[in-house]
């Protein structure tokens, strides 16, 4: 999950900016640290060779330099930030080969639901995408806030109930990646990691066809069951009954997920059994 081993253009750009910024700052920081240690060492009280200058308490030139150095660094980095923010706006499209894949992600307590409205399928805790295609995410939450993050694809974004956030990504290489929620959301939070399978664009339709044959159906009823608090160890897949399901969730036509009152013991995070309430 190394951030410096990006598997898509967004992550690559993010990490380039990250590395560039570090180097810009290191150019200032390293000499400064060196100077601190050198001055501290040379001007130690026991060093008789060092010249004691108690009157050296002001110098216009020094002041100008010490305001200018950080200011110039910030101007440079500010430019990086401005350009980077615009180029890497999560909502900006990321062109890819083939037709874009629309994915609607819903963070549930405590699992991820991925709805493919065009393919009429849905998966839990596994995200399967074709390599090279633009991935067009719409995200919301069934209950509390979460953050959708696939480190090696870049740019995380919050999911919030009653709101839709947007994110565009692209995965360039086939393989298995990991995704997660990067915002604490309750007791089952650490189990919100999910698998990302990047498969070849040619086998993607096959995967869709196989998944569409699943018996389980995702509709309002089964969604309400799914959104109850609990951890999903398996990786269920669904046929999507109504492609508007995501809108129903995001517009709160399906009310927000219940809290712990309805929590059943099965699938509950490991617990000492006590609940002070």
């Amino acid at each position: 999950m190394n951030l410096l081993d990006p598997q898509g253009p967004v992550a690559a750009a993010n990490s380039t900016i990250l590395v560039d910024s570090v180097f810009i700052m290191l150019a200032i920081v390293v000499p400064t640290i060196f100077a601190i240690l050198a001055f501290a060492f040379w001007f130690r009280a026991s060093n008789t060779k060092a010249r004691f200058q108690p009157g050296f308490v002001y110098s216009g030139r020094v002041e100008m330099v010490v305001w200018a150095i950080p200011a110039l660094t910030v101007i440079l980095l500010g430019g990086v930030a401005w350009i980077g923010s615009h180029q890497l706006d999560p909502a900006a499209p990321v062109p890819g080969t083939g037709s874009p894949v629309r994915i609607q992600a819903v963070s549930l307590d405590w699992k991820w639901l991925f709805i493919y409205p065009d393919q009429r399928i849905a998966t839990v805790n596994t995200l399967t995408v074709p390599a090279g295609a633009e991935l067009n995410f719409q995200l919301t939450s069934s209950s509390v806030m979460n953050t959708f993050f696939i480190p090696q694809l870049g740019s995380m974004i919050y999911t919030m109930n009653g709101m839709v956030t947007r994110l565009n990504l692209r995965a360039d290489n086939e393989g298995k990646l990991k995704g997660m929620s990067a915002h604490f959301s309750g007791d089952g939070f650490p189990d919100m990691m999910f698998d990302v399978n990047v498969i070849s664009p040619l086998s993607f339709p096959d995967w869709v066809a196989t998944t569409a044959k699943t018996d389980a159906v995702l509709n309002e009823e089964s969604y309400k069951k799914l959104m109850q608090q609990g951890i999903e160890k398996g990786k269920p897949t669904y046929r999507l009954e109504d492609p508007r399901l995501f809108n129903l969730i995001a517009t709160q036509h399906i009310p927000p997920g219940p809290g712990p009152e309805l929590m059943s013991d099965a699938g509950r995070p490991h617990s000492g059994g006590h609940d002070a309430r």
């Binding site: 601190i36 001007f43 060092a50 200058q53 050296f56 910030v74």
Partner: peptide, 26 residues
């Protein structure tokens, strides 16, 4: 983001002023 970086300027100035307080000191 840029506003946040700007705070680093006066903070950096402080570091340098401490540095030059040490310069020529005992």
């Amino acid at each position: 983001g840029i506003a946040s970086m700007i705070i680093a300027v006066p903070t950096g100035v402080k570091i340098y002023n401490w540095l030059f307080t040490m310069y020529g000191g005992r």
